[in-house]
């Protein structure tokens, strides 16, 4: 045993790995999150890819095809549904069942479970993104993101912003039922403004203005631009940073461990 572990009590680092492993097992054994977060967007991608008119370039969509417009929307759908629906749920029920409380009597801080959840969900989001890009390139002849650095940055900020909103839901909801209600109240309007029902380009300008101020709308904008080869403009990136900071602060301020 090293001097370090003798003189400084606290949980061994390996404990975090064990917690992540168990959270990953739970995600695998209760696969609703995987089905929703990866399966639905992949299915929609394939369907849209098979629709002939979706492959035609359209002046109203800035000379993009509907399929190209939908790729970033489906990526943000994956991120959104995992962060808003499948992140708060386990945290709220862990709190309700006393799992977080029990953990807080061990050398491991209860916040490690929350961090492990973020790791697992972020992995699912990146897997979903990777699959959507790979399928669109391999089977539908689209090109890979033109600005990889911008793409990764847009992705990371989108994940951070949506995590913050999801954690704020977990902080506000007392019960798993309340979490589901808040999730639904947030998710469907946010999905509308991401353009999943109608691409924003087809709607009046006021909708686009609102969309750019919502986390999923900003995420779509930033990811779209980076896929087309540009570094994303400052506006959507700043919107995402703002959501990450404001909702992250609210979550931290109001999250209850028991």
């Amino acid at each position: 045993m090293s001097l370090h572990t003798l003189t400084r009590p606290g949980a061994p680092r390996a404990a975090f790995g064990k917690i992540v492993l168990n959270e990953a097992r739970l995600a695998w054994r209760q696969p609703a999150g995987i089905v929703a977060g990866i399966g639905i967007s992949l299915l929609l991608l394939i369907i849209f890819g098979e629709i002939h008119v979706f492959r035609q370039h359209d002046a109203r969509l800035g000379e993009l095809s509907a399929f190209q417009v939908y790729i970033p929307i489906l990526i943000s759908f994956s991120i959104g549904i995992l962060a808003l629906a499948y992140l708060p749920g386990p945290l709220v029920s862990y709190r309700e069942q006393g799992i977080l409380r029990r953990l807080s009597t061990t050398p491991v801080p209860a916040s490690w479970v929350l961090a492990a959840q973020l790791v697992v969900q972020a992995c699912l989001m990146m897997i979903a993104t990777g699959i959507l890009i790979a399928v669109s390139v391999a089977f539908f002849g689209e090109s890979a993101p033109g600005n990889p650095a911008g793409f990764v940055l847009a992705l990371m900020l989108s994940i951070a912003a949506l995590f913050a909103v999801g954690l704020a839901i977990a902080a506000a909801a007392r019960t798993p039922g309340a979490a589901r209600g808040l999730m639904a109240a947030a998710f469907y309007p946010l999905m509308f403004f991401s353009g999943i029902y109608f691409p924003m380009q087809l709607l009046p300008g006021v909708f686009q203005g609102i969309s750019h101020l919502t986390p999923l709308g900003a995420a779509v904008q930033a990811v779209q631009d980076s896929m087309l080869g540009e570094f994303p403009p400052a506006a959507p990136l700043l919107v995402l940073v703002a959501y990450a900071l404001v909702f992250g602060y609210l979550a931290k301020r109001f999250f209850r461990w028991e």
Binding site: A11, P12, A15, N22, L26, I99, R102, P107
Partner: peptide, 22 residues
């Protein structure tokens, strides 16, 4: 009143808690 996640195995819970201590 403490519970553990329904779909973790007993051995997995024991292993995880074991890793918390030196």
């Amino acid at each position: 009143s403490s519970a553990f996640p329904a779909k973790l195995r007993v051995g997995e819970i024991l292993d995880m808690y074991r890793s918390f201590y030196r």
